[in-house]
């Protein structure tokens, strides 16, 4: 054995000798065991308490469901009256509804046609030459347009002709897609042909 080995053994011996001097206190073992057992029993207690609580909760829930079920089956039936008004389409009424529907469709189509009639499609600039005994308008294409008093009055009732027009005014004549006049208004640009 070398000197180094001897040293190693010495250190180990010294360490072991020191260890013998300082042993774990006996009181520590008692304390550890006491606390460990206490923790174990408290854990058991809480575990048992939890189980009891769960069981009691389940029992309560079952009781509530059972009571409700019993009430549902054994309670006296209560009579309540409700006024019921039935709306339905009978054969005769059906014909009336069909007639109404047909008329509605018809009026709607007429309305759409009239609306289409009044939609401006294009316009022309013109000069209002004459307002008596029907209007005379001369377009920039040198066309002479004669508008009857009845049409003028109708257009006026529909607010499609300006109120302030006078002979000699520059106007815009609005035509629909069929070439019918649907409006005569004073030209805002005040331009002449």
């Amino acid at each position: 054995m070398t000197k180094r080995d001897n040293d190693e053994i010495d250190l180990t011996s010294l360490y072991q000798a020191r260890k013998k001097q300082y042993k774990s206190p006996a009181a520590l073992k008692r304390k550890v065991l006491k606390e460990a057992m206490g923790a174990k029993y408290s854990t058991r207690f809480f575990s048992g308490f939890q189980q009891v609580a769960i069981a009691a909760g389940t029992l309560l829930l079952i009781s509530l469901v059972a009571i409700q079920y019993y009430d549902f089956n054994h309670s006296q039936p209560q009579l309540t009256y409700t006024l019921v008004e039935v709306h339905s389409i009978g054969e005769q009424e059906n014909n009336q509804y069909a007639e109404i529907s047909r008329k509605y469709d018809q009026h709607y189509q007429q309305f759409k046609q009239k609306q289409a009639l009044l939609v401006s499609h294009h316009s022309k600039s013109a000069v209002l030459n004459q307002m008596e005994g029907g209007w005379e308008l001369v377009t920039c294409d040198k066309e002479l347009l004669k508008v009857s008093d009845e049409l003028v009055n109708t257009l006026k009732e529909m607010d499609l002709i300006g109120d302030t027009l006078q002979a000699g005014d520059n106007v815009n004549i609005a035509f629909n897609r069929y070439g019918l006049i649907v409006g005569i208004h004073q030209s805002k640009l005040n331009k002449s042909c």
């Binding site: 260890k19 300082y22 042993k23 774990s24 206190p25 520590l28 073992k29 304390k31 550890v32 606390e35």
Partner: peptide, 27 residues
């Protein structure tokens, strides 16, 4: 194992700490 553990902890700290840590460890 208690003596080994206690001595190890005592060498690295002091009596009170060694006892305290021993207790915590064993628990």
């Amino acid at each position: 194992c208690s003596n080994d553990l206690y001595h190890f902890l005592l060498t690295l700290s002091d009596h009170a700490t060694a006892k305290d840590i021993c207790q915590k460890t064993w628990l």
